[in-house]
Design a protein around this nucleic acid. Sequence first.
DNA 1: ACCTATAAACCAACCAGTCGGTATGCCCAT
DNA 2: ATGGGCATACCGACTGGTTGGTTTATAGGT
Lengths: 206, 206
Amino acid sequence: MDPSELQHQSKTKFLDAALQVIRSKGYTATRVEDVCAVAGLTKGSFFHHFKSKEELAIAAADHFAAMADRLFASAPYQRAEDPLERLLGYVDFRMGILRGTLPDYTCLLGTMVQEAYDTHPAIRATCDKHLSSHATMLARDIAEAKARYVPDAPWTPESLGLFMQTVIQGAFILAKAKQGPEVAAESLRHLRRYLETQFTPAAQGA
Amino acid sequence: MDPSELQHQSKTKFLDAALQVIRSKGYTATRVEDVCAVAGLTKGSFFHHFKSKEELAIAAADHFAAMADRLFASAPYQRAEDPLERLLGYVDFRMGILRGTLPDYTCLLGTMVQEAYDTHPAIRATCDKHLSSHATMLARDIAEAKARYVPDAPWTPESLGLFMQTVIQGAFILAKAKQGPEVAAESLRHLRRYLETQFTPAAQGA
DNA sequence: ACCTATAAACCAACCAGTCGGTATGCCCAT
DNA sequence: ATGGGCATACCGACTGGTTGGTTTATAGGT
């Protein structure tokens, strides 16, 4: 086996373990040894691959964002020709992945940035980068749909993309409070309804 | 000075300090001694008033919710006769209180529940209780406005009240990521626009 | 021989919670 | 009115478990 592939394997184990543990307990309460236990490796190996716990958090954020990018890039709704259909497809798709336990579907970036925004600037910056880039991805479809259906709508594509992120992040908080995805799904339905109204010229308010 | 008032003073100092520190650093990263330092009191006094850090968190959540209740109960928009005007007034009012630093205007409940939902069931339950009760307060105005303007709208008042909480909580996450309230205010503008469309009979989609 | 990955024992700092003690004020019996 | 008993508020040194990070050692591939 290629040694760089071996490294890759162990590092990936740590990163996957970090996703799971941090999304359950938050960044601060996550112990390096928790991550090692879940990864099935030891601290010696951990500090061979990461120079600190904070570096793990940043790498985990990158790892998470890369996974999310692949997930959405390969989702079936992407094949729709109509940008609005893709946008609504995105919301429906997000509703569909609210499965399993809370750590399975909540967002690592939102979890970490809430805790670390003031105390760990590097983590905050990384979470911001990925959250914003996800919103920008949405903004591309939004811009296309806006040009096609409601060119005079009173919002920018960027702003609406960020609003979609806002709803998703808030939905996870309520889901945690209520211990289940139903309230999150219901919020996504409201979001979908908002998008429908905004892209329907007849109904479009000021 | 009344001794019970004295107790009240010190306990309140701890609670106010906890609001500030936990909203900056999160629950886990908050050290009891941080709270003591901000309160200007000592650990001995702290553990005289609270039996554990977790009990502080729960008391702080209650304290925060009570403050918020007073704040919104006495806000000027409450005087409007029209329930829809009160609802939109609420959103505008929330936009208006996005002032100062992030710990000044973000929500203790959302911050704590995100971190503690899995590890501290009692904290989770308390946060849920207050978040839900705030949403229920909104749902009262929503129900009145729905009856008056859009009795056949396709959502329940409870669901829309929770959605408003969702947007607010998500807005704080984005504000933390981007280090300022602008993105939160922009999300509240989208929320306001959604409310306007949903309470305008002509524009109301299925 | 050398280098990477992993292991395991170890260390020093940190921190929630404890404990012995002081101060203050109230109640009530004398 | 006074002094003893008692409860409450507070202090700050201390403790014991925890945990991020280090060090030393070993296995195995080249």
